[in-house]
Design a protein around this nucleic acid. Structure first.
Lengths: 252, 252
DNA sequence: TGGTAAAATGTAAATAATAAACATAAAAAA
DNA sequence: TTTTTTATGTTTATTATTTACATTTTACCA
């Protein structure tokens, strides 16, 4: 009785949502009317959000809100998924991975297998995403929180980075200027954190979807030679790719 | 065309929700199919939450729904709301407030007016809640993240606390043992953080709903005389309340 | 400027989801 | 045990959603 409610809530929390059909498959010997009543009960308890044909977890809604805040996590989705899928193959279980804040890296975090990683991040959304998995451990860089992007920055952050060891840093940028090979972002404080991380990491992986090429934002936090591997999507300009490879950087 | 979308979003934001019927009445010379498409468009943009027969504003959902503590369904909601409403009156704008992680304190965070507070917390959910407001600034204690409770703990956390100043600490406990006046919680690491905070704070406010009385969890992090003000609900046992007041602690 | 493609809107039928009403079974209380 | 309550099941009616296609409007450009 209450067990089923808990199981349902757990599933919704873990997967972000559930469809009615999934629910029926999960409980084949319970009538659909009862399951419907269960969802409504959970909704009354404010544990989930009931939508047509299923239910959402509260966190899914939170994320929606975030997406609405920051400019649309929703564009170039296919490209970002492609990049994330390629990038997760580059990190090894049991390794210590820093994941930078950003929409592509959020897809990376989702795609990361449920294995014994040590994950470090300064992005709330990513921390939560990883924390929902069973096996990884997660540490969050403390500091001042930036509105809109939900990442931490500032001195505390930098000090913390000094004390930790990073094998692999999975980074992203708001813009890439191909003439100078500069990776840029929108705020000074963010750039500082990124710089510290890159300095500390043994291996720097840069995730960059094609929409970022020649998009200019104020602060440069890295140059091409700070990066070891770049992961791009299939629409990434061929010439730019060659140019980067000529610099001795592996482009995937 | 786009005007209509904006009007709809505005209405939903203002009223918290809209039903299909209302929508049809509001735009009598637009077909219901178009309105339906409009709502779906807004949903895709993460501007509203689409539910059966209408839509909700994201904010309504956030306000109404409980924080996401994955292991348990929320209970004692009314009591916690009551406590939160009383407690927010105790903190002054422009003051530096630490908010402890917990479900009651999450309600506190929601109830906190949108004013120039300096908020510190070790709870992701609370950080996000405050960050959605316009005026407060938020800093997050870094450290190892605990699964289920989504709070940070550990050495990094403690070190950070040493460096900061706290005017008011808004705390909560998992249990209160009335014989010894001990506030308890479920993990050693959590207790350490709570202890550090209490030591640093000028004023300690403890939010405790009646379900916590004589609930025993392993680690004691504070005694009655560490606390300055206790905020409780109307079901809080009278004798226990008197007992606490006799110790010179203000109970609200 | 007319022609044309693209986008927005409308209509109606088919499908799916929800709610209502009542029957039955299981659990709790007397 | 009997009664009462609660949880569940079944069916039907209502309402919501989707689909597929028709029509209109808008935007663009030769």
């Amino acid at each position: 009785m209450k067990d089923r409610l808990l199981l349902i809530k757990e599933f919704i929390d873990k997967n972000g949502k559930i469809s009615f059909h999934e629910l029926e498959c999960a409980f084949p010997n319970v009538s659909s009317m009862t399951l419907r009543r269960d969802l409504n009960k959970l909704e009354e308890e404010n544990a989930v959000i009931r939508i047509s044909g299923g239910a959402l977890s509260v966190n899914t809604v939170l994320r929606a809100k975030e997406a609405d805040f920051s400019e649309r996590i929703n564009y170039n989705t296919a490209e970002k998924l492609e990049i994330a899928d390629k990038a997760v193959k580059l990190v090894e279980p049991k390794s210590c991975v820093f994941i930078d804040g950003g929409s592509t890296t959020t897809y990376f975090a989702r795609a990361l297998p449920d294995d014994n990683f040590y994950v470090l991040t300064n992005a709330l959304v990513i921390a939560e995403t990883i924390l929902r998995k069973e096996k990884p451990t997660v540490a969050l860089l403390g500091g001042d929180l930036k509105k809109n992007s939900f990442i931490t920055v500032g001195k505390t952050c930098i000090d913390f980075i000094r004390e930790i060891n990073i094998q692999t840093a999975v980074m992203t940028a708001t813009g890439y200027i191909k003439d100078t090979g500069a990776f840029t972002c929108g705020s000074q404080s963010e750039a500082e954190v990124k710089r510290s991380i890159i300095q500390k990491a043994d291996l720097v992986i840069m995730l960059l979807d094609s929409s970022k090429v020649n998009k200019k934002t104020p602060y440069t936090f890295a140059k091409l030679d700070d990066v070891n591997i770049m992961v791009v999507d299939k629409n990434f300009p061929k010439e730019t790719k060659n140019q980067i490879e000529d610099m001795g950087i592996r482009v995937i």
